[in-house]
Design a protein around this nucleic acid. Structure first.
Lengths: 193, 193
DNA sequence: CATCCTTCCATAACGGCGTTATGGTCACCG
DNA sequence: CGGTGACCATAACGCCGTTATGGAAGGATG
């Protein structure tokens, strides 16, 4: 049934599965060792402990996020592509909200704190957005400027929306997507366009 | 030294203290019982368990956030007041980042999920912002519209910034406050003004 | 071929955790 | 004055992360 090689990768995938299906409360070295068919010591030889495994899962989450946003593809309209990337980003986060929460660590699992290794993977995903913004600038759809801060503003707003949506803080609004998310992104794009 | 009555409130304050000084990893019923000078059973008689205590701490966090933002006071310029409220909001979050993370971390700490009780306290804080926006509208500083979605957009962007700042995701930018936060809020205000 | 050394994981133990069962104490109410 | 309920101390159960120890496999070295 299960392939035997690469215990490290299988632990990461098992952790991502448990996170997606049962939430962070179900994450434990013993549970993962059982699922993968090994002992808890494998977690220590490969990750140095449970926090190390969580960091690896976070890096994996950023890799998946990168792939998902990249899969949105490109058209001949840079603004349409920006909207498509944002939609893909949100869809990915909502499809695995626990993983997304752990990625942005605010989720406070253990004493986790961002290391350079995971930050690098996260920044690769962010650079995608910078490239999309820069492309819109050279195409004349956005005013010429440093694309990094503009991309950071878009990402910040989108991330804030996703976090509050996952935490169910828009419960009292009907259709928050069209009342909050879309106008907010439209305002930001209009102001830098 | 310590007042004896109201074990419930003392447990909440002890939890907020531990959260602020040592982070969520140090939160435990046994630890809090030791600090307060009681047994773990007090947690169960007053909160029904550890998740119940966390929910109470979240509600307390929203109450403090409300007070902190309200303390910003009012001038005769509604736009200045909006900026002051945003600054107070950010300062409060950065002063106790663990508490802020738990408040919005739908994930991770146990199986915590937002209940109506805490949402109500959170919405009271949000209503402050709605009132500030409405005040700016009647003063003519912002275009007349439904203030709730506008306030939600401002809050979303500000929250996103605070979360990413706490998680140290702006490490690669110098002065993210002036490169990201200020222009983002300015753009949103300009677009609705 | 024999040896060593490194990598990797199984077993078992330690302390701490949330939770539960049980019982005791004290206030209040009939 | 008996009872009844709220509140908490004690102790146990089954988890957890982590560590110590040792054994098995494989490549390098003589």
């Amino acid at each position: 049934m299960s392939a035997e090689p690469d215990v490290r990768q299988r632990l990461i995938e098992a952790a991502a599965d448990v996170l997606g299906e049962e939430g962070p409360g179900a994450l434990s070295a013993r549970r993962l060792a059982r699922d993968v068919g090994t002992s808890t010591m494998a977690v220590y030889t490969h990750f140095g402990g449970m926090p190390g495994l969580v960091r690896a899962v976070v890096a994996e989450g950023f890799r998946r996020l990168y792939d998902r946003v990249a899969a949105a593809g490109l058209t001949d309209d840079p603004v349409v592509d920006l909207a498509a990337a944002a939609a893909a980003y949100r869809a990915h986060a909502l499809a695995d909200p626990h993983l997304y929460s752990v990625m942005f660590g605010s989720a406070s699992l253990g004493e986790y704190r961002l290391h350079d290794e995971e930050l690098e993977v996260g920044l690769a995903a962010f650079d995608q957005l910078v490239a999309l913004v820069e492309r819109a600038m050279v195409a004349g759809a956005l005013r010429q400027a440093d694309p990094a801060p503009v991309a950071a503003q878009l990402w910040t707003a989108l991330h804030g929306y996703v976090v509050l949506e996952i935490a169910d803080f828009y419960r009292h609004l009907d259709d928050p997507e069209s009342q909050v998310l879309q106008p907010m992104l439209a305002h930001l794009l209009a102001s830098v366009g």
